[in-house]
Amino acid sequence: MPDYMETPQGRRIAYHRTPGQGPGVVFLGGFKSDMTGTKALYLQDWAEAQGRAFLRFDYSGHGQSSGDFLDGAIGDWAADAIAAIAALTEGPQVLVGSSMGGWIALLVARALPARVAGLVGIAAAPDFTEDSMWAQFTDAQRAELAQGQVALPSDYADSPYVITRRLIDDGRQQLVLRSPLSLPFPVRLLQGTADVDVPPAVALRLLDHATGPDLRLTLVKDADHRFSTPDCLALIAASIAEVLARAEGTGQAG
């Protein structure tokens, strides 16, 4: 059973926290996913084996947290992450963001720069509401969205994704690829070449746009968006370990 915390906005967030040494690791999940996914559970086991503090949680409207998914937006979920990190962790953290979680991680880093020791992005999807959703909508879909929401087919569920006007409008207030993006800590971006949801071009754009002393992108041939094969999971863990070693070696973790 998860524990629960309440955010300053009054949302009830479900979480699992593993005690251990710092810098801790925080897993930030994707759009419509939850903290019981393959990557989150694998990393919790990895952190426990390392004696490393670890936090996973559900954004509002996701998993076991309060709220309706359709009421939420990027800004809400970033605020949930900021609240969880502020309340449930101590000192600098390595943020591990999967898909939408990569965007959330960048927003957390902007809001809480002193609390970020490093970042690992897994098929990170910054600005996807604008560049992936809105940009690909037909005129008819945009007209439908103007009335409140539009339904999109999903490769991952039997029912369609419902995209709300608020998700798109709020996303425009959270964009990170339109203005300077400083990442003054170790960053590892992991990306599959067979990812059709967040193509490699997104990772290359993020790498090109961000500035920082230690940014690297690793492309994995034929890996898809889930990035959850044993080899991919091992690569995620190795990337976190490398970021931790560099953060601790440069004193950013102190």
Results as ranks from 00 to 15, higher is better:
L145M: 08
T89F: 05
I74V: 09
P180T: 09
F69Q: 07
E130C: 12
L235W: 03
D80F: 10
L219Q: 02
V196R: 14
V176M: 13
E48V: 08
E248C: 13
I122E: 03
G249H: 07
T211E: 10
P199L: 08
Q252D: 11
P160W: 07
A135V: 05
R12C: 09
L206P: 13
Q191C: 12
E144C: 07
G37C: 04
F54C: 02
Q173Y: 10
L41V: 09
M1Q: 15
L95N: 04
D158E: 12
D195R: 01
D208H: 14
V243H: 08
I168E: 03
V116M: 10
F27M: 07
D127H: 09
P199R: 04
L28H: 02
L112C: 08
G63V: 00
A86G: 15
L152A: 14
A86R: 15
L215A: 06
V176W: 11
D214W: 07
A253Y: 00
T138D: 09
D158H: 13
G61D: 07
A237H: 04
L112K: 06
G171P: 11
D58V: 03
A83G: 11
Q136L: 15
R172L: 06
Q149V: 15
K221H: 10
L204S: 15
G118W: 10
V96I: 07
L207A: 08
Q93P: 04
R17E: 12
T218E: 15
V176D: 10
Y59M: 06
S66W: 04
G24V: 01
L95C: 04
P2F: 00
A109E: 10
H225M: 05
